[in-house]
């Protein structure tokens, strides 16, 4: 469940530009696609929901929690447990292997580690063979799938994906979308994707246009 109320954000160095965001209201397990031209503040909205940015005004509610009312410590903790982020170009820890990256994410979530889930997830994402490889040894598609794994391993309440398909070919794009949908279902979480990728549109009913 995600709800935002009259969110507004201003970047410090460009005082003139203020982003006004439409209110979002997603019920349990409901997915949404955020569309809009670049520069309109899609990523900003995503980071506001994740609590990485603090809005000028307005609130973000996830479940029954108002993100803006959390202290820094609580926010870190909340993000660790309930937010999963997937980036356009994957961010990983280069010195660790695929498996170690996943374990790191799991550990930081401070939830009980679930070996079975980890194994299943790796299998589902077809990463079993490369699980002990360093990230730079993986192909683009494998990396994007790892990115998804990192976003969902800890069963977050909210999965936020920032242009997850823009660097992928059609086949991989299809795969990523279906995997995201499937994982969101398994985790019983809200999936929010920002994209300008036309290929994605048809897969989701709920469009929010900025």
């Amino acid at each position: 469940m995600i709800r935002t109320t009259s969110l507004r954000y201003t970047y410090q160095n460009t005082k003139t530009d203020t982003f006004y965001f439409p209110d979002i209201d997603l019920s349990f397990e409901q997915n949404a696609l955020i569309l809009g031209p670049s520069g309109i503040g899609k990523t900003t909205l995503l980071h506001l929901i994740a609590g990485l940015l603090i809005p000028k005004s307005g609130n973000v509610f996830i479940g029954n929690t108002c993100v803006q009312e959390l202290t820094r410590g609580q926010l870190n903790n909340f993000r660790a447990k309930h937010i999963g982020m997937i980036f356009q170009r994957g961010h990983f820890i280069k010195s660790l292997t695929l498996l170690e990256n996943l374990t790191m994410r799991e550990k930081l979530s401070k939830k009980r580690t679930d070996q079975h889930r980890k194994k299943q997830l790796i299998e589902e994402l077809e990463l079993t063979e490369v699980r002990n490889k360093k990230v730079h040894e993986l192909s683009e598609g494998q990396r994007q799938r790892l990115s998804i794994a990192l976003g969902v391993i800890h069963k977050p309440k909210v999965i936020l994906a920032d242009e997850p398909t823009s660097n992928l070919d059609d086949a991989n794009c299809e795969k990523v979308i279906s995997l995201l949908k499937k994982e969101a279902q398994i985790c019983k979480s809200n999936l929010v994707i920002i994209t300008h990728d036309q290929r994605v549109k048809s897969h989701f009913g709920n469009h929010i246009i900025l």
């Binding site: 990485l52 870190n76 903790n77 909340f78 937010i83 982020m85 990983f92 930081l108 979530s109």
Partner: peptide, 15 residues
């Protein structure tokens, strides 16, 4: 060099 990795750890909830 690892600024992004460190930022990533922050999105993972690391303080």
């Amino acid at each position: 060099e690892r600024k992004q990795e460190l930022a990533l750890l922050r999105t993972y909830g690391a303080t």
